[in-house]
């Protein structure tokens, strides 16, 4: 087995409708589908989707997919299943030649957008055919080529997700979405690269744009949100200071205490007592 991470690769032409040919299942791997011909009605995570040629569906571990009424419609499609590592949390495994940072960014992008499962992605067609050729012919260099094509596919998907979600017509909207994503997972040690990737911008352009729009550097904006959330928790008087520090993304209660006091003049516990 050359590619333990590729669980399945199919190029299917379906000419008849059969019952129970595509029953709804929770997947434990990454499922990718590219539609070549026909019209497919699927349920992905309880959402009804109709897919046409050029459409690409992406289903992540833990999500549910199946045909409507358990049927696979008439048509042609590519199907690809790839195993994820670390209990489904690491989507691009050791096979990937991307850098560690890039893998993390793509991971973030896919997870944040997992409600947006169907993309228009005509560019994927050539990739899928090439992948098929490499897997069939096993010519010299095919081992590297296959993994490269997979990397290329994930990069393409991520870029398309960003393009669909963040229009450069509307940076305020993009920024608001970023803020909501950060607030949902404040404990995560966000880097500027990760934040930039979520908006689909390069790090330099992103930093410049954020500074211009918000008056803060990206990391300072993040600290600002952290202190805001921490302030609310301190006022609630229910959670202890260390837990507040960690849940809002500070390294330690010491780090929290210093940062908080530097801005507000109070240590967290003084602030609570006031």
């Amino acid at each position: 087995m050359h590619f333990p991470h590729i669980l399945e690769f199919t190029h299917k032409k379906n000419n008849t409708i059969q019952l129970n040919s595509f029953n709804s299942n929770v997947t434990d791997c990454i499922c990718l589908y590219y539609i070549l011909e026909g019209k497919f009605s699927w349920m992905i995570d309880l959402q009804q989707h109709t897919l046409y040629p050029g459409d690409f569906a992406l289903v992540l571990p833990g999500q549910r997919i199946g045909g409507e009424s358990g049927i696979l419609n008439i048509g042609a499609l590519f199907g690809l299943k790839i195993s994820a590592e670390d209990c489904g949390k690491l989507l691009l495994g050791k096979w990937s030649g991307l850098s560690k940072k890039e893998k993390l960014s793509i991971n973030q992008i896919l997870l944040v957008n997992k409600q947006q499962l169907v993309l228009k992605l005509k560019e994927a067609q050539v990739l899928m055919y090439n992948l098929q050729l490499e897997l069939q012919n096993e010519e010299v260099g095919f081992y590297t080529r296959v993994n490269q094509l997979l990397d290329e596919l994930f990069v393409l998907i991520s870029r398309q997700l960003i393009r669909q979600n963040n229009s450069r017509r509307d940076f305020p909207q993009t920024f608001l979405k970023l803020e909501q994503t950060l607030r949902q997972n404040l404990a995560h040690q966000w880097t500027v690269e990760e934040m930039a990737a979520l908006t689909g911008m390069g790090t330099t352009a992103f930093t410049e744009k954020v500074k211009n729009y918000s008056g803060f550097s990206p990391l300072n904006y993040l600290i600002n949100i952290r202190i805001t959330e921490a302030t609310k928790l301190l006022k609630k008087n229910e959670v202890n200071v260390t837990d507040i520090a960690l849940s809002t993304g500070f390294y330690s209660s010491q780090h929290f205490s210093t940062t908080f006091k530097k801005l507000t003049g109070y240590t967290p516990s003084e602030f609570r007592k006031k």
């Binding site: 608001l176 918000s214 803060f216 801005l263």
Partner: peptide
């Protein structure tokens, strides 16, 4: 220093008072 406006429902328009305070202070 910018602070966001949240529209949880179509007619609603809200801002986080703590965020406004912290932003001002900073």
């Amino acid at each position: 220093g910018h602070y966001p406006t949240f529209h949880e429902q179509p007619d609603h328009s809200e801002q986080d008072p703590e965020q406004m305070f912290i932003t001002m202070l900073y």
